[in-house]
């Protein structure tokens, strides 16, 4: 049913998106927690910085990454010299590009639940003998879980659709960085690629809907467990 190339693109898209969200989730929770809970000098700057990828053109973001993580870039050289790793033109690089583009979406959803989280419940847990770490993992984290789930879904969907930053930073290499959107773009550019394009377009849409349904299912299941006020 699927051609080898199509299957490759889908697998690549899923893998790149999974790692992008997986790695950025702890940072997303941390930043959302700090932004949702605390007031400090420079907060609006941090807020703007986190949200910047929403408004900067993805191609420009990709170029920024290229400058920073390229072989001669500020971080790229350090990675190359110390770890022998290069992110440019690799699927890991595509993951990094996706993570940065989707990060604001992840933070936004989680931040809303952090702001809505009743700190009185955390105080109650403390009076019951729970230290801050146990309080976080047994009370705060489960209560912001619906927001995390929404953030994860949105960010994942954004990663699957990522195009501009990926093609700029990680290029369009079959089997390495040619994700669904990049494959779609490639066949559209080719003469006579209309039917292949149609198929890839359908896969993209189906994938997006599966992600949506899955998150709706999980959200409903956690809502069933408790109605958060």
């Amino acid at each position: 049913m699927l051609t080898a190339l199509e299957w490759e693109a889908i697998q690549l898209s899923l893998r790149i998106s999974f790692w992008a969200v997986f790695i950025s989730l702890p940072f997303g929770v941390g930043i959302a927690w700090v932004l949702g809970r605390y007031n400090f000098p420079g907060k609006s700057f941090l807020d703007a910085f986190v949200n910047a990828p929403l408004v900067i053109p993805p191609v420009a973001l990709g170029y920024i990454l290229l400058v920073l993580f390229g072989r001669t870039g500020l971080f790229g050289r350090v990675l190359e010299d110390w770890l022998g790793v290069s992110l440019v033109f690799t699927w890991e690089g595509a993951s990094l590009a996706s993570a940065i583009v989707s990060f604001p979406l992840l933070v936004r959803s989680i931040r809303i639940s952090v702001e809505n989280l009743d700190q009185g419940l955390e105080k109650a847990a403390r009076t019951l003998g729970a230290n801050p770490i146990r309080t976080f993992f047994t009370i705060s984290l489960p209560l912001i879980w619906p927001g995390m789930l929404a953030g994860i879904t949105l960010a994942f969907a954004r990663c699957v659709g990522e195009f501009g930053a990926t093609i700029t930073f990680a290029s369009n290499i079959p089997g390495e960085t040619r994700t669904l959107p990049l494959a779609l773009y490639t066949v559209i550019e080719m003469p006579g690629g209309e039917s292949a394009a149609l198929r890839l377009m359908i896969f993209s849409v189906v994938l997006a809907f599966i992600a949506l349904f899955l998150s709706e299912f999980l959200a409903r299941r956690s809502r069933k467990k408790f109605r958060s006020n």
Binding site: D118, G120, T127
Partner: peptide, 12 residues
């Protein structure tokens, strides 16, 4: 042991 005005039961 602290009993709050608003009970503060853990909803989950």
């Amino acid at each position: 042991g602290y009993v709050f005005q608003d009970a503060r039961l853990f909803p989950h």
